[in-house]
C-alpha cells in the first residue's frame, strides 16, 4: 500500500494509538480495515481505508496483521512531513516493512516492524438510524472536550432544534457550552449542522471523547451521531479513502 502523503497514515495512527495500543489490521483486495476496543471495553474504533484511496495498492491474499500502534507511531515519527509512505508485507513473513521516500527522492528510509500474534475479537456493530446527527468543526469539538474536562469527568450532551449543549459538573461547580445551529452557511467546514429526528440527552466519559479527538487532524469536520441508550458514534472522514469511527457506550444514571 502506497500513499503519496504518508502524513495521512501517521494521523490515523496518532488518532488510534491512545485508545488502543495494538490492533489487527485486516488487509484484503478492497483495502484495509481495523476494529478494536479499548482495554475497558467501553469504546471501540473502526477504521476503513479503501484500496482506491491509495496511490497504489495490491493484496494478493487476505491477511490479518497484528501491529503495535505504539511502535508504528514511533517509526512514523521519523517520517518527513512530505514523505511518501509504502507499507508492504511479504508472504509468510513475520514483519511489516515501512518505507519512506523524501519528496525529491533523495532520501529513502526503511524500517521493519515485527508483527504480533493478536486474538482478533470482532463485534457486530448494528446499522443505526440515529435520532440526531451533528456536524461541526473538529477543532471546535476538541476544544469543547478540553474545556468540559476542566469541570468534570462526564459530559452531558443535549440536543434541541436550536442547537446542542455540552455540560459538565464536578467538585469545582459546573459549566456548559451551547452551540447554535449555523444558519447562513458560508463555509461548510465551519458550520454547526444538526439533523434531529428527536431530542436526545446522553452522558459520556469525557476522557474517551478527548482520546477520539486525537484523530481530529484527519478532517476539518467531525460527525457526532446520537440516539437514546445507544453508543455515540464519532466520525472523522479520511478524504477520498474512508473514515475513522469511534463508538462510546453512554453512562446511565444509577
Amino acid at each position: 500500500a502506497r500513499l503519496l502523503h504518508g502524513s495521512i497514515f501517521a494521523k490515523v495512527i496518532e488518532g488510534l494509538r491512545e485508545l488502543v495500543n495494538e490492533a489487527t489490521w485486516e488487509c484484503s483486495g478492497n483495502g484495509i480495515t481495523l476494529q478494536a476496543m479499548d482495554s475497558s471495553h467501553v469504546a471501540l474504533v473502526s477504521l476503513v481505508m479503501r484500496s482506491e484511496g491509495f496511490e497504489s495498492y495490491r493484496c494478493d491474499r487476505n491477511m490479518s496483521l497484528g501491529i503495535s500502534l505504539v511502535s508504528m507511531s514511533k517509526v512514523l515519527k521519523t517520517m518527513g512531513k512530505d514523505d511518501s509512505l509504502t507499507i508492504r508485507v511479504n508472504d509468510d513473513s513475520d514483519s511489516i516493512i515501512i518505507a519512506m521516500e523524501s519528496q525529491n527522492q533523495d532520501k529513502f528510509a526503511d524500517y521493519e516492524l515485527r508483527l504480533m500474534d493478536l486474538d482478533s475479537e470482532h463485534l457486530g456493530i448494528p446499522d443505526t438510524d440515529y435520532s440526531c446527527a451533528i456536524k461541526m468543526p473538529s477543532s471546535e469539538f476538541s476544544r469543547i472536550c478540553r474545556d468540559m474536562s476542566i469541570m468534570g469527568d462526564s459530559v452531558l450532551i443535549c440536543t434541541t432544534k436550536e442547537g446542542v449543549k455540552f455540560s459538565a459538573k464536578g467538585d469545582l461547580g459546573q459549566g456548559s457550552i451551547r452551540l447554535v445551529q449555523t444558519t447562513n452557511i458560508e463555509k461548510e467546514e465551519e458550520a454547526v449542522i444538526i439533523e434531529m429526528k428527536e431530542a436526545v440527552a446522553l452522558t459520556f466519559a469525557v476522557r474517551y471523547l478527548s482520546m477520539f479527538c486525537k484523530a481530529a487532524p484527519l478532517s476539518p469536520q467531525v460527525g457526532l451521531s446520537l440516539s437514546e441508550d445507544t453508543p455515540l458514534m464519532c466520525e472523522f472522514k479520511i478524504a477520498e479513502m474512508g473514515h475513522v469511527r469511534f463508538y462510546l457506550a453512554p453512562k446511565i444514571e444509577d
Binding site: 467501553v42 469504546a43 471501540l44 463485534l123 445507544t230 453508543p231 457506550a249 453512562k251 446511565i252
Partner: peptide, 14 residues
C-alpha cells in the same frame, strides 16, 4: 452516581 455501560450491552459479540 453514573454507571458506565460496556459496549457488549449494545454490540453483539460476532
Amino acid at each position: 452516581v453514573q454507571m458506565q455501560n460496556l459496549l457488549f450491552r449494545f454490540f453483539s459479540d460476532a
